[in-house]
Design a protein around this nucleic acid. Structure first.
Lengths: 229, 229
DNA sequence: GGGCGATATATCGATTCGATATGAGGTGTC
DNA sequence: GACACCTCATATCGAATCGATATATCGCCC
């Protein structure tokens, strides 16, 4: 699930770990407070797998000696020496970027139907824009079917006969949440169909809402070297 | 969280691991599918800590040679030999019971205010009957306050300016869920106050609902030796 | 110039999961 | 009656994640 979130964020811009975590936390509607103890090992995993690669680090590679500053060079040298010594402490800032394999992997993670973890679905929705419209629709409908299955399952089984008030109350709460979620998915699905119909009817998009289109226009913000103050 | 669920179930009856998992899964409203890879280590932990103890096992202790059956004795002997050999494979069924320390620990787990994991709260509600009424009420009100804090936090921060449709949709869904949860807690709290007022007004309970009382009446089912066919 | 908070990376132990191993005992079935 | 297969039952293994902790830099304020 972390892999999905990381790759999803890196599609938009290159980021280093710390910033990645902040951005993830800033995403309202996705209460995702990733710990560093998960994040850094995950980044290592993804790098080893070739899904992301370190684009820049404070300890710059000798092959890129531009940017003049002698102090910068010195700091980089020191950082490298520290890293080579294997000791703890400050390392250079490592900025990661997604690779082509990573983009492919992201689509895999977004569409794999064998995932049943409820907490993963919102994360998928958060980054589903990279999917082609028909796969996005399929994602929503698969989820809806799963939730409907659960509602029907509880209609079949008697709702906790004999148990105490609190368990009954929990059951009702859960049922209500399930139904609210299905209604929410219905709205998502309807929007999706409307968007598909709209773009099919008129390919030149005269609509004011540009973010809804199948491909987001490249944003004007700095893609590489994020947040270098 | 597992500890809480295990101790909560063992308060009602002694159980072995496999049965414990089944019962947990049977609790509607508490979609809690515990894996064996969590359950058995957790039971070991709790036993080492003195919160539960093995009451019975298929390899019966020599101090309880009743129940006649020679075949049973033989099977027990074989099970014990296997266990002593340290090899893998079938062990005797181990039935656990909660200790006094365990009951104390359960109350601790139910009332600790430093827990912020959202998934734990429903589990607390499921087993909150063991708490005295005033602590149960405090549990509900603390949770309500936390959710209200979150709602106010998002009212302060602008709801994801600029982000895409899907993130906005997730945000709205989350807000709705939050508000539904607060309303649910309001109902729980009101019921709690009503029950408190009712039992204060008339100590002899003429009400038909006996399960709501602070102490559940001992149920007629077998407490020890569960499910021995 | 010295402390402090934000930035930044990393590791450690504990918990949980999912997959897998192992075997007892019952049921069906040819 | 031999066998295949299911449910019951305990256990371990590797991987993912968390929370706590360590360490270091940088800019700011007093």
């Amino acid at each position: 699930m972390l892999d999905l979130a990381i790759l999803g964020l890196l599609v938009e811009s290159d980021l280093h770990g710390y910033e990645l975590r902040k951005r993830l936390g800033d995403l309202r509607g996705l209460r995702l407070a990733i710990s560093f103890g998960s994040l850094y090992p995950a980044l290592g995993r993804l790098e080893r797998a070739g899904y992301v690669k370190a684009v820049t680090s404070a300890a710059r590679t000798p092959s890129a000696p531009m940017s003049g500053s002698l102090v910068g060079e010195l700091a980089a040298f020191r950082a490298q020496r520290r890293a080579a010594a294997g000791g703890r402490g400050a390392r250079g800032k490592k900025v990661y970027g997604i690779t082509d394999a990573g983009r492919q992997r992201l689509v895999e993670l977004l569409t794999d139907p064998d995932v049943s973890d409820d907490r993963e679905f919102p994360v998928r929705v958060a980054f589903c824009e990279v999917l082609p419209p028909e796969e996005r629709l399929a994602l929503f409908e698969r989820r809806r079917a799963e939730l409907v299955r659960r509602v029907e399952e509880r209609r079949r089984t008697p709702g906790d006969r004999g148990v105490n008030t609190y368990l009954r109350s929990l059951f009702e709460r859960d049922t209500a949440a399930l139904e609210a979620d299905i209604a929410w998915l219905d709205r998502l699905i309807e929007n999706e169909r409307a968007a598909a119909a709209g773009s099919a009817a008129a390919t030149p998009p005269a609509a004011p809402d540009t973010t809804t289109g199948p491909h987001r226009s490249a944003d004007p913000d700095g893609r590489h070297e994020p947040e270098e103050p």
